[in-house]
């Protein structure tokens, strides 16, 4: 163990880079195979003459072989150059940079709220102290997990915004406009996470070390928080990658429902218009965040469970 504590970290970062490359390549191939002509996409609704088309081919280098274009794309990606948007005629980095903040705010708020809700519910209902509360809670969780998030969003909107006017209907101005989208996105996450956590808590509470902890005179709340929760958090940490997928997929829909600016809107527009550089950038960015989240989860595992540190 003392040899090199950084080795597991380096190994994970290395495999993360491979995943990143695979994601970028897969996205590139998928878009190449998609029907439709790149020149059509760049021309869009604008003037369309043979001269303009020739200029576009020359300007974007579209007459080069596909392999060269792919290598060129990879090369620029490594240096951080994401290219220019066909649709907006602006650097992709700029387009994404503008829209990143609202999506990040939404995702972080939803993740934080989801985890908080899940931990509170799981701790409140684990064990066999309140069987009726436990049954009610697992019923509600099942409902939340199986309801599409746009439906939750629409219900929240129509009740809290349209009827009672508690929150703004659309936009991203201030804290108030963040509440409903974040809740919409957080509820399914909280539902599944609560089930996993409670299951882990139940199993931990059956372990002999809980009996010895109780036999020391430790309070039940302390038994749950200090002993059982750490054990229960291990399977929950594994879900971090899944959680991120829900956040990303959910954000696209939730931003649409609540009329929020953000990466979801940008992605939707880019896919519809076949704006290749933007789609590629979003896919690569998602893959990067996904890799980062999973690496962090693996390292959290090592932090929480000393038994894994040996190898």
């Amino acid at each position: 163990m003392a040899g090199s504590p950084l080795r597991p970290v380096l190994r994970r970062v290395g495999s993360g880079l491979v995943v990143l490359w695979a994601a970028a390549t897969a996205a590139y191939l998928a878009l190449l195979a998609a029907p439709g002509d790149t020149v059509d996409a760049i021309v869009g609704e604008g003037a369309d003459t043979p001269q303009i088309r020739a200029d576009i081919v020359a300007e974007w280098g579209l007459d080069r072989p596909a392999v060269v274009q792919y290598l060129d794309y990879l090369g620029r990606l490594v240096t951080g150059d994401l290219g220019r948007s066909y649709l907006l005629q602006r650097p992709v980095a700029e387009v994404i940079g503008e829209q990143l903040a609202p999506t990040l705010a939404l995702a972080l708020a939803a993740a934080g709220l989801g985890v908080l809700l899940a931990v509170t519910v799981a701790i409140g209902t684990a064990g066999d102290r309140r069987p009726w509360l436990r049954r009610a809670s697992s019923g509600a969780e099942l409902l939340l997990v199986s309801t599409p998030s746009f439906l939750i969003g629409i219900v929240l909107l129509s009740v809290l915004s349209f009827r009672f006017g508690l929150f703004p209907v659309a936009g991203a101005h201030g804290f108030g406009s963040l509440v409903l989208p974040a809740v919409t996105l957080a509820l399914p996450i909280a539902g599944l996470l609560a089930q996993v956590l409670r299951d882990g808590l139940d199993r931990a509470l059956d372990e002999p070390f809980v009996l010895t902890a109780r036999a020391r005179g430790v309070r039940e709340r302390v038994v749950l928080l200090r002993h059982a929760l750490r054990h229960a958090s291990l399977p929950a940490v594994t879900l971090a990658g899944w959680l991120f997928g829900i956040l990303l997929g959910g954000a696209v829909i939730v931003e649409q429902v609540f009329g929020r600016p953000g990466l979801g809107q940008v992605t939707l527009a880019a896919v519809t218009a076949k704006d290749m550089p933007v789609v590629l950038a979003v896919v690569t960015l998602s893959a990067a965040v996904y890799v980062a989240v999973n690496t962090a989860a693996d390292l959290t595992y090592l932090l929480v469970d000393p038994r894994l540190r040996r190898s």
Partner: peptide, 14 residues
């Protein structure tokens, strides 16, 4: 004070 069998499981492994 209570001491039970199998201290591997009776002490919190974390």
């Amino acid at each position: 004070g209570l001491v039970v069998q199998d201290a591997l499981g009776s002490l919190d492994p974390l």
